[in-house]
Design a protein around this nucleic acid. Sequence first.
DNA 1: CCGTATCCTCCTAGATACTG
DNA 2: CAGTATCTAGGAGGATACGG
Lengths: 136, 136
Amino acid sequence: MPTRTAGQRRAEAKVAYDAYLDQCPSRQLLARISDKWVTLIICALGEHETTMRYSELARRIPGVSQKMLTQTLRTLERDGLVARTVTPSIPPRVDYELTPLGRSFLEPIQHVKCWAEHHMPEVDRARAAYDAARPE
Amino acid sequence: MPTRTAGQRRAEAKVAYDAYLDQCPSRQLLARISDKWVTLIICALGEHETTMRYSELARRIPGVSQKMLTQTLRTLERDGLVARTVTPSIPPRVDYELTPLGRSFLEPIQHVKCWAEHHMPEVDRARAAYDAARPE
DNA sequence: CCGTATCCTCCTAGATACTG
DNA sequence: CAGTATCTAGGAGGATACGG
């Protein structure tokens, strides 16, 4: 006995969520993950073979404030992309790593980061051309 | 006569830009393109076979304000991802389309949007579990 | 070492009104 | 139709100080 009708399964297979829609939760999720710090944290954790400590992450991502690092890690943990492990030693040790869900997001977001790094020269040329055409 | 030395070419082939670095222009570019409206606009233009008018885009992306739509389109145009064509008729007609550079960004960003749409249920479950573990 | 709490300052982005 | 201009509120995010 199926838990869903054929029609329901068909609808889900197509699109259960639509980020174009204003009130769709997937748009809010898109807004959350469309973030500089999210991208860099996920990529940093994804590159590393083992877990990463808080201070390691901070060093890997120069310029991130303590507040933004902690805050972003918390939301990523709550959203199930990052796992946080506390070792109650003195001094305390906290390790972060990607969950399976987080790893499923790694490839997409890595491509975005790489795109930015690889196409910077073209963007620079486009900006120069745009600005040159509109003097003053 | 080469315009760059072998060493310079090698360095560029590896990584000319590094988004992890605080002052690297590619991080600023990453910050720009890590944006809800950028994602939705690029995806909308990418789905469409022909060009899209301003009002078409506005309809495709419910909830976007006139200001954000115009502003985002301008920066995308300046960065060379979007081409803007004005037809001076009455009433005036303005068409937008992806440039080749913009199309090169379409696949990466589409995957991010799709990821959000497809993994929303798992994120929801993770949030519920997180919140349940921290009553109050 | 890894945070939390507080303050405080921008800057973003929405609302509104007006124009070629 | 497709914008521009102006105002303003709210939140994002940095700096700082303190705690387990």
